[in-house]
């Protein structure tokens, strides 16, 4: 029963993601879930661009509250994911929502297709990409405005506990899965290309779930993945261990379109307020797997 449920869930998830992958012109939000608009004060009214800021809210001085669209990968727990009730949730989502409340902005979530996230950002489908995103030099070179890093990310190898694999050197001649469009994949193509050379094959999957399924089904020997994701998965599923060699320590940040420096500054300012008034720490407390890597708290 549990397996069946898992399969069903898995199929739903991957179908959703894959649907985006196959039809580039379609926005995933249109095909999958409608972008969730959350505005607690006006729950009974659908929030629209022109929705007047509620009179009972004191902060916004201008008549037009702007709507801030947050671009996320809805399959990236614990930073951004669909919770049990089908709402977008996760650390990044909660922080962004709180930041928008501080700024008096309407808050919307838009599920991007992760390997095309920057194209979607450029085409105004969202105002930022904020979803456990690794800051890459190529992004800065391409002119995107990138926020101050807020999270220190480390790539690890998730292997089966009974595999006897204990270091990256053991993986010579083995198959390793990595999610397409993640920092892990960029690392294997860049800084860690020498390590990747020793592998038999690098298999790129379009979601973490598939990477883990490949590992569970013995189609690969290891998954190269962000530490918190690996930690969460190993905690929930028996028989997996993590090889942590501090490979490719990287940092997470928020990407904005080039020229959106002011927007970036506004969000950074709001987040700073959240940090100082303790909201940030309170939210982080719900995400024990990542709390140690959060730069603003350590």
């Amino acid at each position: 029963m549990k397996k069946l449920l898992a399969l069903l869930l898995a199929l739903c998830l991957v179908a959703g993601l894959a649907a985006c992958g196959s039809a580039k012109t379609e926005t995933p939000a249109k095909t999958d879930e409608p972008a969730v608009t959350e505005e607690p004060a006006k729950a009974e009214e659908p929030a629209t661009e022109a929705a007047e800021p509620a009179a009972e809210d004191e902060e916004p001085s201008d008549a037009e509250a702007r709507t801030f669209i947050m671009g996320i990968d809805a399959e990236y727990p614990p930073f951004s994911y669909l919770d049990d009730d089908g709402n977008y949730s996760g650390f990044d989502v909660e922080i962004c929502k709180a930041a928008c409340e501080k700024l008096g902005w309407n808050f919307e979530v838009f599920g991007v297709n992760w390997d095309e996230k920057l194209i979607q950002l450029d085409s105004n489908e969202c105002d930022c990409v904020w979803s456990g995103m690794t800051i890459l030099d190529s992004m800065i070179e391409s002119g995107y405005v990138i926020s101050k890093p807020y999270y220190d990310n480390t790539q690890v190898l998730l292997v089966k506990a009974d595999s006897g694999l204990t270091s990256s050197a053991d993986l010579a001649g083995k198959d390793v899965a990595v999610q397409l469009g993640t920092s892990g994949e960029s690392l294997l193509n860049g800084d860690l290309a020498d390590l990747a050379e020793t592998f038999n094959n690098v298999i790129t999957c379009d979601s973490f779930l598939k990477c883990f399924t490949e590992l569970g089904g013995n189609a690969v020997d290891a998954v190269f993945v962000d530490l918190p994701v690996a930690t969460a998965y190993a905690a929930e599923n028996e028989g997996y261990t993590i090889i942590n060699e501090n490979l490719g320590a990287e940092q997470y940040g928020i990407a904005f379109r080039s020229g959106d420096t002011e927007l970036c500054a506004a969000i950074e300012g709001a987040v700073a307020e959240l940090v100082s008034d303790g909201t940030y720490a309170a939210i982080a407390a719900n995400y024990p797997d990542i709390v140690n890597n959060l730069l603003f708290l350590n």
Partner: peptide, 11 residues
């Protein structure tokens, strides 16, 4: 992946 999820067969 069906055989793996349903019966635990290798992928």
């Amino acid at each position: 992946y069906g055989p793996y999820y349903l019966f635990g067969f290798s992928v």
